[in-house]
Amino acid sequence: MKIGLFFGTFNPIHIGHLIIANYMVEFSDLEEVWFVVTPQSPFKKKIAMLSNHHRLAIANIAVENYPKLKTSDIEFNLPQPNYTINTLVQFEEKFPNHQFCLIMGEDNLKGFHKWKNYEAILQNYELYVYPRISDGKTEHEFSTHPKIHKVNAPIIQISSTFIRKALQEKKDISTMLPENVWKYIDEMNFYK
């Protein structure tokens, strides 16, 4: 089975994440997309982040009606900070019959040359890149690389940062979250 791995803190997961993941399973050769809920990115400062357990619970709620979308907590037990190459090795060991690919935004591709062991990632895995509005140029080697697939997914301009800020300001952003996620976040009084 060909699995797309969509990494993120998902603090919280929102409809933009689901739209991109669903687009990948419906309009590419990926059979499933797994949201890999990560405890801490080496490129992000620790922000006001819900606990791993709560972010995973919210992600599980978000995908419960989508059989081709799953979640993974594989990084919760890996040394911090997590590096993608280490996680990929763990996935290979745990699921030897699956073929894993990375899903990333175009903005992440621009900094991909800074990732730990990025050459090994490119040698062994395909990358599925969705468009993002961002500054800067993509390294030439990445714009023509045979293992990098640019996917013409919709450009989503919703961010978890925006969601958290809006919730703190008591705005009704229920349309930007799956209905079951909105209910859960509201009931648990998260981000307020």
Rank of each mutant, 00 (worst) to 15 (best):
T38N: 14
P39E: 05
Q40A: 12
Q40G: 09
S41L: 05
P42K: 03
P42R: 02
K44S: 09
M49V: 13
S51I: 13
S51V: 15
N52T: 15
H53R: 15
H53Q: 15
H54G: 04
R55A: 13
L56H: 08
L56P: 06
A57E: 10
I58T: 07
I58Q: 03
A59E: 05
A59M: 07
N60Y: 00
N60K: 10
A62T: 04
N65G: 10
N65A: 09
N65F: 01
N65K: 04
N65P: 06
Y66M: 14
Y66W: 09
P67Q: 06
L69C: 06
L69N: 04
K70P: 02
T71L: 08
S72Y: 01
S72M: 08
S72R: 04
D73C: 09
D73K: 06
N77W: 00
N77S: 10
L78Q: 09
P79E: 11
Q80K: 08
T84G: 03
N86S: 09
L88C: 07
Q90G: 02
Q90F: 05
Q90V: 15
Q90S: 13
F91V: 11
K94Y: 06
P96E: 14
P96S: 13
N97K: 13
H98V: 15
H98T: 13
H98D: 14
Q99P: 05
Q99L: 15
L102E: 06
I103V: 15
M104C: 12
M104S: 04
G105L: 07
G105T: 07
E106W: 04
D107V: 03
D107C: 04
D107R: 05
N108I: 14
N108P: 06
N108Q: 14
K110C: 08
K110H: 05
K110G: 07
F112Y: 08
K114G: 05
K116Q: 08
N117S: 12
Y118R: 08
E119F: 07
E119L: 11
A120V: 11
L122Y: 02
Q123W: 00
N124P: 09
L127R: 03
Y128G: 07
Y128F: 15
V129C: 07
V129E: 06
P131E: 01
P131V: 10
R132V: 06
I133T: 06
S134R: 05
G136L: 11
G136S: 08
K137S: 14
K137P: 03
T138A: 03
T138Y: 02
T138N: 03
E139R: 00
H140T: 13
H140R: 12
H140P: 07
T144S: 14
T144I: 15
T144V: 14
K147V: 03
I148A: 13
I148P: 06
K150T: 04
V151I: 15
V151D: 08
N152W: 00
N152T: 11
A153D: 05
P154M: 02
P154L: 02
P154R: 01
I155P: 08
F162Q: 12
F162L: 13
R164V: 08
R164W: 03
A166D: 03
L167M: 10
K170R: 07
T175E: 12
T175D: 12
